[in-house]
Write a protein that binds this DNA or RNA. Structure first.
Ligand SMILES: [Zn+2]
Ligand SMILES: [Zn+2]
Ligand SMILES: [Zn+2]
Ligand SMILES: [Zn+2]
Lengths: 139, 139
DNA sequence: TTGACAGTGCGACTAAGTCGCATTAATCTT
DNA sequence: AAGATTAATGCGACTTAGTCGCACTGTCAA
């Protein structure tokens, strides 16, 4: 626990390692796809941590501001979060089975994104790229 | 009005040209950026059409299913709509002035999107690409 | 071990959208 | 032009996702 980089970051920032905080981080770690606040809350409760809805929301917001959780806002769905140590990627959402699949960053795509931004005279702080359709299984 | 392609499509489909429907289409036409349901409702009311909130939502959904309105779901914002006859494009959202700017489709970007989809074995029905940052004026 | 205060639980609140159902009005028929 | 048909509407109650203030509590450094 003391060698965990996220926990060290939190301690270094003067933040406490509370039950709720550790439960939420554990829930994010366990997840294989981005989770909504409600799902994270359910996961924490299932794991035996008694935390409140408001706490779950506040904690996720805090973890996002600390760079530990990454907000994932897929169009049409409610806000989700994933753990932030998996490198830059995007998502493909299956419209049939609802599965969310990671799409590794593609150099050409990222280059095109940069070029387009330059063309329209925009300073890009963040970008979103999502695919919606049918996954291998559902096709 | 009878030569309007959208109106002709609606008539051909056996749909009525109601006050609400025409008011919503007019609001979408007037808009220079994607509008939320609330904004469209306000625009209709300001134009003198007495329509209900539920009607505005239902009408927008209907127009989207008819291919006349295009849902624009920019991450973190509520669902918006724009008129559908402007060709494929994406959006750049200024985080300071909240302006939403159209970004014309870029051949290289679209090609990269297609290639990435193929790589992950995904049948893409729709894609999203958005830039978030600072516009020319706000930089 | 204890004081300070970051973090929590509670509950009331808001914003965005949905739904069922009785009524209205756009279009069709005659 | 009047009546019939039924798509579309208004109303209001409901849901879902998230926010907020405030009194209380648990973490941790001294
Ligand atoms: Zn699938
Ligand atoms: Zn990217
Ligand atoms: Zn701006
Ligand atoms: Zn595109």
């Amino acid at each position: 626990m003391d060698q965990d980089p996220f926990f060290r970051t939190l301690r270094a920032g003067g933040h406490r390692l509370t039950q709720a905080r550790m439960a939420v981080i554990a829930a994010l770690r366990k997840a294989s796809a981005p989770l909504s606040a409600a799902e994270i809350l359910a996961s924490c409760l299932a794991a035996g941590a008694r935390i409140d809805r408001a706490t779950a929301y506040r904690e996720l917001e805090f973890l996002a501001s600390s760079g530990i959780a990454l907000p994932v806002r897929l169009e049409g769905r409610s806000l989700r979060y994933e753990i932030s140590d998996r490198g830059h990627h995007h998502h493909a959402v299956c419209l049939k089975c609802e599965n969310i699949q990671e799409v590794k960053a593609d150099a050409a795509l990222e280059a095109a994104e940069t070029r387009v931004a330059k063309r329209v005279g925009f300073t890009v702080l963040r970008h979103a790229f999502e695919l919606f359709g049918l996954c291998k299984k559902c096709r």
